[in-house]
Design a protein around this nucleic acid. Structure first.
Lengths: 329, 329
DNA sequence: TTGTAAGCGTTATCAA
DNA sequence: TTGATAACGCTTACAA
């Protein structure tokens, strides 16, 4: 049994296909005919064919969310907030995980997925590939966690975040400073964000005459704690070291190492995280907040705006970090 | 500037569209004309329009992966392995995260997304909603981490996993047994898997005359460690307790609690995790392996098979858990 | 307010 | 081996 088409609906309700299309898409139709059509639709269990719609120039009401990473609390919360707004506007979100170069190349090679979407949000990704014109996104693009002159974008002022961390740590009385960062596994993941945090951080230190060199940059990983020894060394060899963890995840590792060593945060050492993840308040971790929900929602607003009112100017939206001061610094 | 179509290629190379289509899809074309066409394609930078292809009767070569959870190592690795095979077969994977009832209802209400896919894999979800016929998936469905008579499915024998845990813990000499589980946040997430682990576990205990009641079931959460006190109590009040953590995540919490309490795993208490996550070997955690990569690949094989050779029998594929014995038990 | 018909970019059939 | 042409199911002028 074949699936009913718009023609079946039209003939069953005794109208033209144009009329059916109009009731489907909200054109003006007389109330009585509308009722006839709706009844036929229900009777047949008709569902419009999305492929045909797209080909005919219609909208999909679907937005593609490109993300190189989906496992972090940050991305999870951004995604949910993004979806909340989209749902309200009657759009649908689909995730395209870009966890490898291969996935990215696939997208470049076959852009049908993008064409089947009204727009795309590109999240936490190196955007170098974009300007190379590899991909024709049809212009409905919003960048997330990236800065750009050419595209609408939503990002946090990471340099300021780094500065705030340095200033507070200095205030606390530290004179030896360390940064905990991570080793990237995914070359697509935008690391500029982390570099800017470091830039802001070391900028202030230099300014105030403190030393900082590459040896004070410790690498761990997002999902496995791998820097125990190095952190332990910092905690034991320095007096009141000031540690800036570029993500709350890393701060957790410091906290646990300290706990094993019986070092007390806020007294024996000072620690600042980044993100303001949900567990940090309970843990008493001083951290730099990223307003994830606000940022996710803003990205959703921008992409919907672009779709529904094309031809606007590029809007770069900068969010400001906020210090959440708690026990560790 | 409009994107070139097959017509542009045809006229530039002086052939008909049918011929171009044939070189694109591997029909028989004379070598010399083929060269002309290929040259035109390259010159124009022509890319076939997937939407038109689909409408003209083709497939989308796209598979939707429905997941209620994307943050765990388990789902991440399954997803990657799944994608590896799909990519090899020239399919494209897209994720539809089902992190709320609302998302699920959306899918029920508007199934265009599903129709735009050649098939769907439904992962770790309560499948009750499926039999209600809410969704017409066009029959290309594979269930993952769920058991069913009506659908192809890939799952692990969780009852056996539970049994193996109980037997080993008994062997180790424990006589007090505990299970660490989690509190669900997402009603769509299939909890049957966890229930079956418990079922197998307690089944063996009862059989061998050991007591187990609800009070010995401790709840924590996947992403936040919330059971410190309860675990500490178990570790201090019982002699050589045997602890079965229903996921490695929970086992990690036990390990950390024990470390703070100076209790030695494998001596003061025995601990078995579940999954065989990548950090467990280094940590010396005894755990029950789920062959994530094999399972992901199998699901990919099944869905491709269903798409390319329809009308097969339902295939339920059961994987067997494997004990990875290490220091903690 | 409505129906008709011309696209949208392919694939597939059928003559040539 | 080819080219012309009819689908595929919809949207959207345009005319009535």
């Amino acid at each position: 049994m074949k699936r009913p088409t718009i023609k079946d609906v039209a003939s069953l309700s005794g109208v033209g296909t144009g009329t059916v299309s109009r009731v489907l898409n909200g054109g003006s139709v007389k109330e009585t005919t509308k009722i006839k059509v709706v009844r036929a639709i229900e009777k047949l269990g008709y569902q419009p064919n999305q492929t045909a719609r797209t080909l005919a120039g219609g909208k999909t009401r679907r937005i593609l969310f490109l993300m190189p990473e989906v496992r972090t609390e940050f991305h999870w919360r951004v995604m949910k907030s993004f979806d909340d707004f989209l749902d309200m506007m009657n759009y649908e979100m689909v995730i395209y995980p870009v966890f490898s170069d291969r996935r990215l190349n696939r997208l470049k090679k076959d852009s049908s997925l993008l064409e089947d979407s009204d727009g795309a949000v590109i999240c936490t990704m190196n955007t170098g590939f974009l300007s190379k014109n590899y991909i024709n996104f049809g212009n409905n693009i919003v960048l997330f966690e990236a800065q750009s002159e050419e595209f609408d974008c939503v990002y946090l002022d990471n340099i300021m975040g780094g500065r705030m961390a340095a200033e507070l740590l200095i205030d606390c009385g530290s004179s030896d400073f360390f940064v905990i960062s991570f080793e990237e596994e995914n070359s697509i993941l935008a690391t500029e964000n982390f570099e800017k945090r470091i830039e802001g951080f070391t900028g202030v230190l230099e300014n105030k005459g403190y030393e900082f060199n590459q040896e004070r940059l410790v690498y761990t990983s997002f999902f496995f704690e791998t820097a125990y020894e190095k952190i332990a060394k910092i905690l034991t060899e320095y007096d009141k070291p000031g540690i800036f963890a570029l993500a709350d995840n890393f701060a957790l590792e410091v906290l646990q190492t300290a706990s094993a060593l019986k070092k007390i945060p806020g007294k024996d050492f000072f620690l600042i995280g980044y993100d303001n993840q949900s567990w940090t308040e309970r843990a008493g971790l001083t951290t730099i907040e990223q307003p994830m929900e606000d940022m996710g929602r803003k990205a959703a607003e921008l992409i919907v705006q672009k779709i529904e009112a094309p031809g606007q100017y590029i809007q770069p939206v900068k969010f400001l970090p906020k210090m959440k001061r708690r026990r560790t610094a």
